[in-house]
């Protein structure tokens, strides 16, 4: 019997059923069930320790659920953005082309496609710069370009703008929306309620490893049902 599973079906891009994850005695996820459909932009909201990052890492295949014999490998083309983007010690262009070259695409084509993507992200002029010498905002845009170049069906972002200045946040948000307009589905964790309102079509509110509310963005912010969600939204207003 599979008590936890990450499976694909025809209607949902990702479906999680009763997923549990624990580290020693700590229960990080306590039976999360969730379906994400193509084209959705889902924000994971919740306090620190709610399980948002763990859920993203599990969907991305970086970790496996503790229960259930199967977490099926994702067949979708996935990419993930991290709060602190892990950049290779190479120039900007090579960082983007890396993802393609590793998939067997010939280097010349990989660089051409990478340059086009850098252009979309406003990084063309920086293509020969050492990636780690870029500003925080530029680094995150570079990580986004590296994700975008692989044409991800599913894009995951774990507080990708948490340490960026407001201007860079809006730039990254604009790019995320552009990627989604081209067909990617987005699941992102954030503490920024404004960002959730701007980007998400749906809010999954989590608390202590459980999904407490799963509703359309307008509905969630207009009339949160659970006390946890009400408290969470009110904290921002205070």
């Amino acid at each position: 019997m599979r008590s936890a599973a990450l499976v694909e079906n025809k209607s949902a891009l990702v479906e999680l059923v009763g997923v549990r994850y624990r580290v020693r005695d700590a229960k990080i996820l306590r039976g999360v069930s969730l379906q994400v459909h193509p084209g959705e932009r889902v924000a994971l909201l919740g306090a620190n320790g709610a399980g948002k990052t763990t859920l993203l890492r599990l969907i991305n295949g970086l970790i496996s659920s503790s229960e259930g014999s199967l977490v099926s490998p994702p067949v979708t083309q996935q990419a993930m953005l991290f709060q602190k983007p892990p950049l290779l010690r190479r120039n900007v262009l090579d960082n983007v082309a890396f993802a393609l070259k590793r998939r067997g695409i010939n280097p010349i084509e990989a660089e051409q496609v990478s340059l086009q993507t850098l252009n979309r992200c406003g990084l063309t002029g920086l293509s020969q710069r050492y990636a780690r010498a870029l500003s925080g905002g530029e680094q995150q845009k570079l990580a986004l370009a590296r994700a975008w170049v692989t044409r991800p069906t599913l894009l995951l972002a774990d507080e990708a703008t948490a340490s960026l200045a407001p201007a860079a946040v809006h730039e990254v948000e604009r790019l995320l929306l552009e990627i989604c307009e081209q067909g990617s589905t987005l699941i992102f964790a954030t503490h920024n309620r404004g960002q959730a309102k701007r980007l998400a079509t749906r809010i999954v509110f989590m608390s202590e490893g459980r999904v407490i509310e799963d509703r359309a963005t307008e509905d969630f912010f207009a009339s949160p049902v659970s006390q946890e969600a009400i408290d969470y939204i009110n904290v921002e207003r205070v």
């Binding site: 996935q78 892990p86 890396f98």
Partner: peptide, 23 residues
């Protein structure tokens, strides 16, 4: 530093090792 990146790009162990040595 790179394990999440390698895993999210689904690199094989050999590809990860090559990349680590280069980096």
């Amino acid at each position: 530093e790179y394990q999440d990146l390698f895993a999210s790009l689904a690199l094989s162990r050999w590809q990860s090792l090559q990349t680590l040595l280069f980096e």
